[in-house]
């Protein structure tokens, strides 16, 4: 193994940060980043699924025949997603109502499946765990930053708390779908600019 465990972990935080560098998982990135609360909820769900599926796939990688590997990955990912969905319904129902369809949609999100195929199927349990955790946290961070920008300008709040005085006129565009696209584009632009140096 060329890379150390720390490297596997930290690459997810910058070099391979999912929405900006890999440009994966954009659908929930755009849809749930209206508020920081939603973004953190989604981020935690993705971290759980990613770590769980990575570890399980790494554990089973010697048994899974390569011809049916994708099917096996999907089962693993879908299982973890359903676990998250049930737990969310049981313990954080209001959050579940807000995230709604985007929780089951983690199944078809390219991040867990992509990591299972590209990393966990070829690496041991511990590197896979680090990889899943790193990318998951990277994803959660990106969502939170994006959501913070949109929430602060779009509704003048941060995590539900007022940021500006009562005279602040919310910039509604930011919480609508086009605002998400523009904001994501600007962040990609900034990331590329910093990355080039």
């Amino acid at each position: 193994m060329a890379k150390s465990i720390t490297q596997e972990f930290t690459k997810g935080l910058w070099n391979e940060i999912p929405p900006f560098r890999l440009v994966l998982g954009l659908c929930p990135t755009l849809a749930v980043t209206k508020t920081v609360e939603n973004a953190i909820g989604m981020g935690v769900a993705v971290i759980f699924v990613l770590v769980g599926s990575n570890v399980l796939v790494a554990m089973l990688r010697k048994i899974i025949p390569s011809k049916v590997r994708i099917a096996c990955f999907i089962i693993v990912v879908a299982t973890f997603v359903t676990v998250v969905e049930l737990l969310m319904q049981a313990y954080t129902y209001p959050l579940f109502l807000k995230l709604g369809i985007f929780i089951p949609l983690i199944v078809v999100n390219c991040i867990p499946l992509g990591r299972a195929e590209a990393f966990a199927y070829k690496n041991g349990i511990i590197p896979s765990f680090a990889d899943g955790l790193g990318l998951g946290i990277g994803y959660a961070m990106s969502l939170t930053v994006l959501a913070a920008i949109r929430e602060i300008f779009g509704s003048g709040t941060f995590y539900g708390n007022q940021v500006f005085g009562p005279s602040f006129q919310p910039f509604n565009f930011m919480v609508e779908a086009p605002g998400a696209f523009v904001c994501l584009g600007l962040m990609l632009c900034v990331m590329n600019f910093i990355g080039k140096k």
Binding site: L60, I63, P65, K67, V68, A71, C72, I75, V76
Partner: peptide
């Protein structure tokens, strides 16, 4: 093997 693994996993 494919059948067994998939069935067991499912």
């Amino acid at each position: 093997k494919m059948i067994i693994v998939l069935t067991a996993l499912c």
